[in-house]
Design a protein around this nucleic acid. Sequence first.
DNA 1: GAGCGCATGTAAGCTGTTACATGATTCT
DNA 2: AGAATCATGTAACAGCTTACATGCGCTC
Lengths: 172, 172
Amino acid sequence: MLRVMSLRIALLGLLAAKGPASGYDLAKLFEVSLNHVWQAGHTQIYPELVKMAADGLVSVEAEGARGRKNYTITGEGTRLLHEWLADREPVMVQRNETALLAFLLPLLDADEAIVAVERIRARARDRLDYLVCLPPVAENPKFGSYALRLGQAQVRATIAWADEILHELRPT
Amino acid sequence: MLRVMSLRIALLGLLAAKGPASGYDLAKLFEVSLNHVWQAGHTQIYPELVKMAADGLVSVEAEGARGRKNYTITGEGTRLLHEWLADREPVMVQRNETALLAFLLPLLDADEAIVAVERIRARARDRLDYLVCLPPVAENPKFGSYALRLGQAQVRATIAWADEILHELRPT
DNA sequence: GAGCGCATGTAAGCTGTTACATGATTCT
DNA sequence: AGAATCATGTAACAGCTTACATGCGCTC
């Protein structure tokens, strides 16, 4: 009955790195920082923060204007975050729609397959451009930079794969 | 209200590639072929096949011993599969727990971070070994091979990334 | 006849998405 | 006054996981 917890960790991470914030802030932060690594909208974030407060991982510090609730990470939250970061066995299995397409590629004619792979390549290029242009997230420029480089490396690998496949598929 | 459908596509793809099969067969096939690309257990597959039959994508050909139901892909199913493979815009965004860890890496001390990255590297190596040793899936050796190469390329990129980060983190 | 593999399912619970709903404050 | 942004939520549904449950057929 192991909880997955990635959303919790992401929220705790942002709170640890940027200090107290409201659910609204965290949702915005998610969009501009964690976005390429994990996604969550406010409809998921708000209820999760409530549960996390109930579990003692965060506390509501103050209620500001417009019903704003300012969350702070607690000692217990810091402990959990640290434990996860330090001990978590990374999961390599993943659900990858692009890889599914690649898997079934031989079901297409060669010319259709070429178009499909070209499309994958184009999307990967778009994403690489996006990842390269992302501005630094926090005061500390290291923040997020490791993940950014990992994303770039993986996308570059996808592009190289596409080039290789296209080379094989294209009529000489 | 766009359905995601990846599970349907995966099942239709297996039926198209391997011919008629039961839910049980498909669950086994999933494990040994699609496994590194998409995961689904029999508890997800059985109900989905029922829905797909209701939608006319597959048909129950015969009921064999032990209540075995043999599913075949229909013309409509083939059409849908082909359309998806040919027209689907690949989604590059993804939820990546390892990348989340990478994102939050600066929250750890240097020595803890080194251990964490080493663990990522070790898992990636395991996975590469697994992917390299996977036997061919079907009579047609092309089947699944493109996806296998994509997976290998991405895992190799992850290993290279880990080596780079470790080089930066390790005291000289 | 005991055990194993075949073969099917249901139910509860968690995670994530989409749509709906509300009210306060600030800017033009 | 009207629009945009701030700020919070709920509800319904889709997708996936875990646990539970059942019965047939073959082999030893």
